[in-house]
């Protein structure tokens, strides 16, 4: 979800876009496959954008559009609803890195995030606690996350889908995300050195008026 451009923020392109890792997949084990985190699944909730001056939360909808677990890759769109300076909901496209110990570790290594920033954010998730000590050592390279019922990710917005870059909003930062495989709930913290710290994203799996879960899928050839 985009946030307001803060005066001091230079531009939205201060960091390199996420690249797919080209690691050899031999010996690679995919992270847990959770049906609630597959293409087509939708989530809704809020992002707290409160500042010292004002308490504020924007409604957010997310939809997963692509998933390539072998490369630790996920992508989708994020729609911010009641953005004060926009007439319509603002949609952005984001790409995600799944922390699987193989393609990506808990250390971001880019986007102006130091290992200290990483740990400060990850520890906000109670389910991260068991990994803290190991992550301090090596970012969690050796951790076995396959049977863990939470999936940790970083989501980085890449471009605005329906508004121009001159909309007064920025997508310079990225999200630390924790997904619960149990109920599909998502918690996240937005990190951008130039925005208010620890803006909390809270999303729940939605079922679009149904009394149950529905799954569609596409496959690339």
């Amino acid at each position: 979800m985009p946030v307001r451009v803060v005066e001091t923020s230079s531009s939205s392109s201060s960091s390199a876009p996420a690249q797919l890792s080209g690691e050899n997949s031999s010996g690679h084990t995919s992270p847990p496959v959770c049906t609630l985190l597959t293409v087509g699944q939708a989530f809704s909730g809020t992002q707290n954008v409160s500042s010292l001056q004002k308490d504020e939360a924007w409604r957010v909808n997310v939809r997963i559009q692509g998933c390539d677990l072998d490369h630790g890759y996920l992508c989708g769109t994020m729609e911010a609803l009641n953005v004060p300076m926009a007439d319509t909901p603002v949609v952005t496209f984001w790409e995600g890195e799944i922390v699987d110990g193989k393609n990506y570790t808990f250390f971001t290594g880019k986007w102006e995030a130091s290992p200290e920033d990483d740990i400060r954010h990850w520890t906000k998730f109670p389910s991260f606690q068991p990994f803290l000590e190991q992550v301090k050592v090596d970012g969690g390279k050796a951790l076995d996350l396959i049977s863990y019922p939470y999936i940790f990710m970083r989501w980085k917005e890449q471009y605005f889908v329906n508004v121009g870059t001159d909309c007064g909003l920025t997508i310079a930062g990225f999200y630390y995300v924790c997904f619960s495989c149990t109920d599909g709930s998502i918690n996240g913290f937005y990190y951008d050195p130039n925005s208010s710290p620890f803006q909390k994203l809270e999303l729940k799996s939605t079922n679009e008026g149904r009394s149950g879960f529905s799954f569609s899928s596409y496959e690339l050839q």
């Binding site: 559009q65 692509g66 390539d68 890759y73 992508c75 496209f93 471009y159 889908v161 690339l220």
Partner: peptide
């Protein structure tokens, strides 16, 4: 074309 159009990012756009 089949290979190139596997780019989810470009498909999404």
């Amino acid at each position: 074309l089949r290979s190139v159009t596997r780019s989810i990012k470009n498909l999404c756009a």
